[in-house]
Simulated scan of single mutants.
Amino acid sequence: MTEPDVHTLTGPYVLDALPEDERVRFEAHLTECTFCSTEVAELRTAAVKLATQVSTPPPPALKANVMAAINDVRQLPPQVPVVEPGPRVRRFTRRSVLTLAAAALAVAAAGGVAVDQYRDRTAAEHANQQMAAVLAQPDARTVHGTVEGGGQATVVLSTKADKSVVVLRDLPKLPADHTWQLWMMDPANKATSLGLTDGDLTRVINGSTTGMATFGLTIEPTGGSPTPTLPPAALVPLT
């Protein structure tokens, strides 16, 4: 376990997922690293909140769903803390967040989405709870599709809750005067806009799920369009 790597182990440590030898070495590291000690305490708090709010018995397909979700997320190098004067802004390592996302899926009893790095902790916890609520639905299902030119679209949806979670990853960069627009389409191809994004995102969508047959992603002029511009960059069947 090299010194740069040790900072990425806060998430597995909180979930008691480290082998014994790594656990012993990491606990020794905690006595010297204020950054990791603080992150361990905060991740434990987040994990407890997720567990107490969305606890349900796990389904048989849980493990396969969680592993598939992790494979869809690009790994980034660990973030090593830099000591600078002034107030410190907390940033979780991406591995820690992915590990907690997997724990949230396990508690919620379904899988398919990994949670992005925390930006604002209060907003992130609220988003985690919304995603877990979708994943906990008995009819929750996950669908995947590729994006023209590169990237992937994943949708976790529950018709019963009339909610979905949309995850877009590795989208190509668009010209400054264009944007990505998200759509839900019914069996007659009537499209309902889900909003715009300049790049990768994880978004909880309330409504616009019941009766829909396809998730679509298009490239539109800045500000979006009332109807999809064809051909679409991605079409993902929801069944």
Rank of each mutant, 00 (worst) to 15 (best):
P58Y: 03
V54P: 00
V89N: 04
Q117K: 13
D177T: 15
A133P: 10
P19M: 00
T222P: 01
R203V: 13
S55T: 11
R95W: 10
A140D: 12
T99R: 03
E22R: 07
F215L: 08
V156A: 03
A69Y: 02
A64Q: 12
K163Q: 15
G224K: 06
P187I: 02
P4S: 09
D200A: 02
L201V: 14
I70K: 03
G111C: 05
T99A: 02
H29N: 05
T99Y: 01
Q137R: 05
R91Y: 08
A46G: 14
E39S: 02
Q117C: 14
D16C: 04
D198I: 07
A133S: 13
K190F: 09
P12D: 00
V54Y: 06
T229M: 06
V89I: 03
P237L: 13
R23F: 10
Q181L: 02
R94E: 09
W180M: 06
P232N: 12
S225A: 14
V24I: 04
A64C: 14
P59A: 13
Q152I: 15
Y13A: 06
G211W: 06
A123V: 09
R121K: 08
L194V: 13
D72F: 09
P221R: 02
R23W: 15
R141K: 09
I219K: 15
A213Y: 12
T239Y: 12
S158R: 00
P85I: 05
E42M: 14
A46W: 04
H178P: 08
L100I: 03
T56V: 07
D198S: 11
V89T: 05
K49R: 14
T210H: 04
P60A: 03
E42V: 12
A176V: 13
D5M: 04
R169N: 09
A109Q: 06
T2Q: 04
V82H: 08
G150A: 08
R74S: 09
V155I: 07
D72K: 09
K49C: 12
V54K: 01
A41E: 09
P19S: 00
R94W: 14
P226L: 00
T227G: 00
T214Y: 04
A28T: 15
V14Y: 09
V54F: 07
V156S: 02
V48R: 11
P57Q: 14
T10F: 06
A161K: 01
E39H: 11
P19D: 02
V82S: 05
E148H: 13
E27P: 11
L201K: 04
L50G: 08
M212Q: 04
E22A: 07
H126C: 08
A17D: 10
A213W: 10
L18E: 11
G207P: 01
V40N: 02
E22S: 11
A213C: 10
E27I: 10
P59M: 05
P228D: 04
L182R: 11
